[in-house]
Amino acid sequence: MKASIHDTHFVFRRLHSLLGLLPVGGFLIFHLWENSQSRFGQTHYNDQVVGWLQQLNYLTLLEIFLIALPLLFHALYGLVILYNGKSNLSVYPWQGNLRYTLQRFSGIAVLLFLLLHVGWTRIWAIWEPAIKADLFAHMQGLLIQPSVFLLYLTGLLVSVFHLTNGLWSMAISWGVTTSPRAQSICLGICAFLAVLLSAMGVHGMLGFLP
């Protein structure tokens, strides 16, 4: 009997969980590391960081299969999951329940932020080759506006929260952490990772400013 794989529900939930870490979460970490190098200046960033990425062979295929499609599945299936729960934080104001609720709200927030973020950079660059040629100047033009900076900061923090809290939840779902002690240690590690990734992201954002 192969009930579990003939019923797609379980496999889809696990796939949603797995894709959230690999490749989507992995890409977020890479993306933050990549952009943290903005502090080395316009020339270094445009030539060494962006230039190195843009000369990769099969780049469009990598973008589609390692970023766009997994992200799209994770986002759309995440919206389906939203309909299977109803937050009750006002009655049970506990931190686990708070993170459950924030995980759902941050998911929507990340999705909205990404539509804007990808639109402003990757999609816009399809019509505007100047953006690709000097991405540093383009980002500086965006981030120099306080409202955009604040928006990017929010987008960064909710993305990092969604990834690190998702990682904690994933460890339980896949059966890595079972005892309350293991789950609590895992929460500490995920919180540390959240601080680290946020710092890296903010560092990168500041690096674009003149």
């Binding site: 696990r14 506990w94 686990g96 329940n97 459950y100 339980i172 293991a182």
Partner: peptide, 28 residues
């Protein structure tokens, strides 16, 4: 897989059953 790991269950259980441990073990 419909569990969302809010972990309210283990806090309200009057019999103090380690429900979230069971969910983790079943996850494995």
């Amino acid at each position: 897989s419909d569990c969302g790991n809010a972990q309210n269950c283990v806090q309200v259980c009057p019999k103090e059953i380690p429900l979230t441990t069971a969910i983790g073990e079943l996850g494995r």
